[in-house]
Amino acid sequence: MESVVRHPATLADAASFDALSVEAASVVTQESAWTRVRKSLSVRLGAYFLLLLVAIALLAPWLGTVDPSLFDPASRDLLPGRQGEITTLEGETLKHRFLMGSDSFGRDIYSRVIYGTQVSLIVGIAVAAVAMAVGIVLGLLAGFLRRVDGPLMRLMDGVMAIPAILIAIALVAMWRGSLLTVVLAIAIPEIPRVTRLVRSLVLTIREEPYVEAAVSLGTPTWKIMLRHILPNTVAPLVVQGTFICGSGILTEAILSFLGVGLPPDTPTWGNVMAEGRAQFNEYPHNIFFPGIFLALTVLAVNILGDGLRDTLDPKMAKRV
């Protein structure tokens, strides 16, 4: 290759040829995926609402809340907006306005809902992260190693055959409720879906000529997986991740509501609703406020996911 020399004659020739060629005349313009994502209305809507929720979760102590586990028998079953009093652990009695009323123990629902945002977001994001991490590894293995593929995918089929909520209940019952066990219990039934998605992406992408080119360039298999295949699965995986996050938040609330999630004194939306269930007829706000938060959060996550799918889906991307 050292013998390469410039050939001015042919170079100039090619330049003027290019001037006539249609191909040279058409400027290749393509918006990057990131630009399209930022322009999308639903991505913005979902993202802004989620940012707001993150802010609420982080700023919970400064938003006029009290310790969510505090209760005061004197302020039981207050209607939203009522003034009451609440006793701190130090025995100090404070005047407090119960913006969303109080429950049958005299706990401030507003504080519990605001602090519940922390739990929900942590659970949603952690579930998505765990399910994606495990699913990506298993999917890459299944897509690349013929021998692993059959047994692994049959196992995944088996997991998928059992309703997700049932597995989660069984796992939490086995392990006892804590944040970690709840996250794992919700993440495990999601793993097969991610594995299947990654596997199918790997199977299509590994037939792409650029992967075959890498094979003929002597690139080792693990490098092909990490450099050529994984980066090209990112877009559909991000979309899948948001949907898992949404359903994770929902499943956590369901588990708490059923009493098999986090301990009842932990402020989660599901726990608040579970406690309010008995008094729903007289005090519907006990369920209404956490319910609204839950619904809006899941809606925001799903809108974000839809927006990402529309902008990142290769079928929607125009090929110039």
Binding site: E208, P209, Y210, E212, A213, A214, S216, L217, G218, R227, H228, P231, N232, R319
Partner: peptide
Amino acid sequence: LRPLRKRVQIVFQDPYRSLNPRR
């Protein structure tokens, strides 16, 4: 085969799919 691979190289039909879009 690996040390011999470099001696044979291939150019494919579809130029749009022959280069990894993310590199």
